[in-house]
C-alpha cells in the first residue's frame, strides 16, 4: 500500500432537515492529490456532504476535518482562511448575474487582496484554461449552460485553491459538452495538482475523472474503491446503480420517500 496523506475526513457525519435524515453516519477519507467522485441517487445527500467541507452546513453530529482542522469548530476568521483554500463549483454555476464574467472571477481575488494587475492576469489565465478566452465582458445571461459551468470552474481555479469541489459538474449538459467538462476537470487537476471531490450521478463522468469512487446510499458510504474496483463490484446496490437498472432507482426512491 502507498503512503497517502489524508486531507479531508468525514467522520460519522449525521445531518437531517426536519424529519428527513440525509446523512446517517457518513464517513470518508480524501487523500492529498486525488480526485474522488461521490456517486449516489438524486436526493441521497451528496451535495449536502460537499457543503459540510466549506462550512455552509454544520453536522448534527460527527465531524468534518480539513487539513487537520474541524470545520464546524472554526471561528469566522478561520472559516474564511479555510474557504480561501477551496474552490467550489456549484451545480448551476451560481454566477452573480449582475456582474460580468471578469467581475465574477475577480470577486474572490479581490477578497484575497491581490493587485488589480494580478487579478487581470489571473482572469485571463483561468478563462484560457477553460477555453473561454475573450469572454471577460459577457454577462451570465449571455452564456449557455455549459459555458456558465466553465466560468464557474474558472472562478474557482483563479483562486489557486488546494482543493476543488464540483457539485454535479455535468448535470444538464449534452454529451459533447459533458465530455468537454470531463476533459476540463482532468486538465485542471493535471495543471494545478489540486485535490478534487466531484459529486455526480453520471457514471461516465465519474469513471473519466476520478481516481476513486465512493457510493453514498442511505446516508452512508456503501462502497469506496478505485474505478476498477467499483466497476467490478459485487455489491448488488452498487451494481444496480452503475448499470443504471431502473428497479434499483425505484427502490431507492421508495427508501428516500420513507426517510
Amino acid at each position: 500500500m502507498g503512503c497517502f496523506v489524508v486531507v479531508i475526513v468525514f467522520r460519522e457525519v449525521h445531518k437531517a432537515f426536519g424529519e428527513n435524515k440525509v446523512l446517517q453516519g457518513f464517513s470518508l477519507d480524501v487523500n492529498d492529490g486525488e480526485t474522488i467522485a461521490i456517486i449516489g441517487y438524486s436526493g441521497s445527500g451528496k451535495s449536502v456532504a460537499l457543503k459540510h467541507i466549506v462550512g455552509l452546513l454544520e453536522p448534527d453530529s460527527g465531524e468534518v476535518e480539513v487539513d487537520g482542522e474541524l470545520v464546524h469548530a472554526l471561528d469566522a476568521a478561520g472559516l474564511r482562511a479555510l474557504r480561501s483554500k477551496i474552490g467550489y463549483v456549484f451545480q448551476f454555476a451560481a454566477l452573480f448575474d449582475s456582474m460580468s464574467v471578469a467581475d465574477n472571477i475577480a470577486l474572490g481575488l479581490r477578497r484575497q487582496g491581490l493587485s488589480e494587475r494580478e487579478i487581470g492576469h489571473r482572469i485571463e489565465e483561468s478563462l484560457a484554461l477553460v477555453d473561454l478566452a475573450g469572454s471577460e465582458e459577457k454577462f451570465p445571461i449571455e452564456l449557455s449552460g455549459g459555458m456558465r459551468k466553465r466560468v464557474g470552474i474558472a472562478r474557482a481555479i483563479a483562486l489557486r485553491p488546494q482543493y476543488i469541489l464540483y457539485d454535479e459538474p455535468t448535470t444538464g449538459l449534452d454529451p459533447v459538452t459533458r465530455a468537454m467538462m470531463d476533459e476540463l476537470m482532468i486538465r485542471v487537476r493535471e495543471k494545478l495538482g489540486v485535490t478534487g471531490i466531484a459529486v455526480t450521478h453520471d457514471m461516465k463522468s465519474a469513471y473519466a475523472i476520478a481516481d476513486r469512487i465512493a457510493m453514498l446510499y442511505h446516508g452512508r458510504v456503501r462502497q469506496v474503491g478505485t474505478v476498477d474496483e467499483i466497476q467490478r463490484s459485487h455489491d448488488s446496490v452498487v451494481r444496480q446503480f452503475i448499470e443504471g437498472r431502473p428497479e434499483a432507482a425505484a427502490d431507492a426512491g421508495a427508501t428516500q420517500a420513507s426517510l
Partner: peptide, 17 residues
Amino acid sequence: TMRVTEQVDALETLAYD
C-alpha cells in the same frame, strides 16, 4: 433569488461575510 440560486452560498465560499 440569490439565495435560491446559490449565489449567497457562492459568496460565502469566496470567503465573503
